[in-house]
Write a protein that binds this DNA or RNA. Structure first.
Lengths: 207, 207, 207, 207
DNA sequence: GATGAATGAGATTTCATTCAT
DNA sequence: CATGAATGAAATCTCATTCAT
C-alpha cells in the first residue's frame, strides 16, 4: 500500500492561492471584455477588477494577448465539453435524430455566455493563430467525419471530408448568426423551427 | 433640367486631387493591413505610404476608424456590386440554376482580394456597428427573400424570412470558410465540387 | 551664375525648430545626469526639463540609450576638437615641447565640463560599444603614432604602436585621475607640476 | 592561547549554511553579470540561479546594490591579496626589479577573472562611492609611496605623493587598457614586452 | 529562517490627433 | 489646403522589495 504523502499545507496553500489569482484574472478579463469592450481591457484595469496587482498578472500571463487567449480557451473548452458529449450521445443514433441533436447542441453551445461569445466573435483581433480554436475546429470536423463514415449506409455515396466541411459550415453558421442577432430573446418555438429547418437541410443533403 | 455647372478647372482640379488623395489613403490603408497587419497600421504610417502628410489624412478622415471603415466599405462595395449583378441575372432563372449561380458568385465574391478579406475578417476589431456591412447583410437577405417569394411555386411552402436566413447562412459559411482556408490555391475541380454540393444542399432544402 | 535658390522659410523654420528640440533634449539629459545622476534620468523627466513632450523625445531619439549616447558624443566631440587642434599645432615641434603641450591639453580636455565628465566616467553603464568613443580612442592612438613616426629621429628605436599605447595610457590616466579627484580646485602650480612630471616620464621613456 | 569554542553543531551548521547561501548569491550575481550583463541581473534571477528564494536573498543583503557591491568587494579583495603580497615581496628589492615585479603583478591582477573585471569596469553604474575600492586605491597609493620613500636613495629627489600618483596611474592604465582590449589572448611575448616597456618608463621616470 | 506570491511605483514607448507655419 | 513637428494620455511591462505562510 502506498505511503500516504505528507500533507503539504504550505505548498497546497500557495497553489490554491495561485490558482485563485489566475482564475480571478481570467474572469476579470472576460467581464471587462463583455461589459466594456476590448479597447477598455488594459492590463492595469484587468488587474484592478481581478483585485490583484499588475505584477501578479504578469507573473501568470506573459502578455495581454495570453490573457485574452486564456479567456478564449476557457470559453472554447466549455463549448467543446458540450459538443464532445453530444457526439458521444449521438454515435449510434440514426442520421435524422443525430443531426437534430447536433444542431440543437450547436445552437445551445453558442449560447453559453452569449455576450462573451459575441465579443469574442466580433471584437477580438484574432490572436496568434489561436491554436486551440483551430484544434477544436479540426476536432469537430473529425467527429462529424467519423459519424458520417460509420453511418455511411444511411446516406448516398459522398466524400466524408467534403460532407463534413459543408455540414459543419452550415450548422455553425446558423448557430453563429443566431447568436449574433438578438440571440437571447429567441422563443422556444423559434428555436425549434430553426432546428427543424436546419436539420431538414442537412439531412436532405446527406441522404 | 439640371443646370450645367460652369467648367471650373480650379475646382475640378482640386476635386480630382482630393479624390486622388482619398483613394491613395484608402489604398495605403488596405496595403498596410494586408502586408503588415492591423497593429502596424498607424495613421502616420498610412499617411507616409499614401505619400501624404498626417495632416492631410485628417483633412479627409476624421479618425483612424473612419479610414478603416472606408477600406471595409470599399471592399464591401466591390462584393455587393458583383452580388447585385448576380441577383439581377438570376431573377428569372429556375431555382436550381439560380442557386448554382449564386453559390458560385458567393465564392467568387469572397475571393475578391482574398488577403484583404482575410485580414478584415480576422484582425479588425469591429468598428462601430459597421453600418454598411450590416446594411449589405440586410440587402442580401432581402434579395434572397425576394427571389424566394417570386419563385415560390418551385418550392415547398416555407417562411421566406426563415428560408432566406438559412440559405444565406449556409452559402456564406461555405464561401467564407473556403477563403479562410487555403483559398487561393483551390483547383477548378474542387471549386466545382464545392459548388455542386452546396447547390444540392440548398436546392434540396428549398424543394 | 547659379540661380539663387528661393529662400524656403517654411523648411528652414521647421529645421531650426527641430534642431532646437534636439539640442534642448541633449542639454537636458546632460543637466540631469550631472545634477541628479543616471538613475533619475527617466525619459519623461528629460523631456520635461527640455520643455518638450516625451513624444518629441522619441521623434528624435529611438531610445533613452540613444539620448545618453548623444550626450557622450557631444562631450567626446568637444574633447576631440581640442585634441585634434593640439596635434596639428604640435606636429613640427620637438619631442619635449610637443609632449608638454599634449599633456597640458589632455588635462585641459578632461576638464571640459568636469562634472559631466565625471558622471559619464563613473555612472554610465557603457552603452552599446560606444562606437564614437572607440573611434576617438583609435584616432588618438593614430595621431600619437603618426607623431612618433615622423619624429623617430629624436627617439630611440621603438615599436610605434606599442609606444603609442603606453604613452596614451599614461597621459590619459594622469588626466583622468586628476579629474576624478577634486579636479576643479587644482592650483595653477599643482597642474604645472603634474604636467612637468608627466612630460618628464613620457619624454624619458621615448628617448 | 585561544579558547576553543564548544563544538556547537547546530550553530556551526547554520553558520556554515548561511555562509554557503551568501557565497552562492555572490557567485550567482557574478555569473549573471558576466554572462548576461547588468541589465539582466534582477534580484529574482540572481536568487533563482543561486538556488535560493528572493526572500533569502533579502535576508542576507539589504538591497540589490549591496549584492553588487559584495561582488565588487570580493573581486577587489582577490586583487588586493595579490597586490599586497607583491609589495611585501618587493620591499627590499632594488628599484628596477621591484618595478618590473609590480608591473607584472598589476597586469596579472587585472587578469583575475577578466570577464568579470571588464563588466565591473564597463557596465556597472558606480554604486555609492564604492568605499572599499577607494580604500584600496588609497592603500595602493600608500604602499607605493612607502616603497618610494624607503628607496629614496636610488632615485632623484621627488615628491613621494606626486610620484606615487603618477606611477600608479601609469601602471594601472597599462594594465587596465590591456584587459579592456583582447586581454585573454595576449601572447607571453607581448606581455613581456609590455612589462619591459612599462618598467622602463617608470624606472626612467623615478631615476 | 525560508519561501515565493504579491505588490505597485515607475519606466519606456506608442500613436491618434492637433495646430502653428 | 498641406505640412509635419509637437503633443501627452495611456498602454504595456519590469523588478526591487515585502510579508503571510
Amino acid at each position: 500500500m502506498a505511503r500516504k504523502p505528507p500533507t503539504n499545507p504550505r505548498k497546497n496553500a500557495s497553489q490554491a492561492r495561485s490558482r485563485a489569482t489566475v482564475d480571478a484574472l481570467i474572469e476579470a478579463t472576460a467581464r471587462i471584455l463583455v461589459r466594456e469592450g476590448f479597447e477598455k481591457a488594459s492590463t492595469n484595469r484587468i488587474a484592478e477588477i481581478a483585485g490583484v496587482s499588475v505584477g501578479s498578472l504578469y507573473q501568470y500571463f506573459p502578455s495581454k494577448e495570453a490573457l485574452v487567449a486564456a479567456v478564449i480557451d476557457r470559453h472554447n473548452d466549455e463549448i467543446m465539453t458540450v459538443v464532445r458529449a453530444a457526439f458521444a450521445e449521438v454515435a449510434d443514433m440514426p442520421i435524422e435524430k443525430a443531426v437534430r441533436r447536433l444542431v440543437t447542441v450547436a445552437i445551445e453551445a453558442h449560447h453559453i455566455d452569449p455576450d462573451l461569445h459575441r465579443v469574442l466573435a466580433e471584437q477580438i483581433p484574432r490572436i496568434g493563430q489561436l491554436k486551440d480554436v483551430e484544434a477544436s475546429n479540426r476536432e469537430v470536423h473529425a467527429l462529424v467525419r467519423a459519424y458520417l463514415e460509420s453511418h455511411r449506409k444511411e446516406m448516398r455515396r459522398i466524400d466524408p471530408d467534403l460532407a463534413a466541411f459543408i455540414c459543419v459550415s452550415a450548422i455553425e453558421a446558423v448557430a453563429h448568426n443566431t447568436v449574433l442577432n438578438g440571440a437571447e430573446m429567441l422563443s422556444e418555438k423559434t428555436v425549434r423551427t430553426l432546428v427543424d429547418e436546419t436539420t431538414r437541410m442537412v439531412v436532405g443533403y446527406l441522404r
